[in-house]
């Protein structure tokens, strides 16, 4: 398998910030990929497959994060998780 890298800037659009429910959606999506997937804010980089890691982000509304993936399915991973941010986590209200 070819290793590839992919990344995308994403923004938290939920008024309550990136709380537990969207975090668990990220974990579930990320775990479906072979690639390593990370999210970072200003150099604080965490494993998107770990709830305890994601909880340390404390990302409030409007925060910009860098989504990165490395591995055979990096592009698909960034597309799927970036899509969660773009859709405001499937239309979550807050």
């Amino acid at each position: 398998m070819n290793k590839s890298e992919s990344n995308k800037k994403v923004t938290v659009g939920l008024t309550n910030g990136l709380h537990l429910r969207p975090q668990s959606m990220i974990v579930q999506a990320a775990q479906g990929f072979e690639s390593d997937v990370t999210l970072s804010i200003e150099g604080h980089k965490v494993d998107a497959k770990s709830m305890l890691d994601l909880m340390t982000l404390a990302a409030t509304f409007g925060t910009e994060l860098l989504l990165e993936a490395t591995g055979s399915d990096a592009g698909s991973a960034v597309e799927a998780i970036g899509g969660l941010f773009d859709s405001n986590f499937e239309g979550m209200d807050s």
Binding site: N16, L20, L52, M55
Partner: peptide
């Protein structure tokens, strides 16, 4: 106060790691 909730989760998770 959604920010406080996120910071509390941050504090808890930091120690639980």
């Amino acid at each position: 106060r959604p920010g406080d909730h996120l910071r509390a989760l941050e504090t808890i998770s930091k120690h639980l790691r």
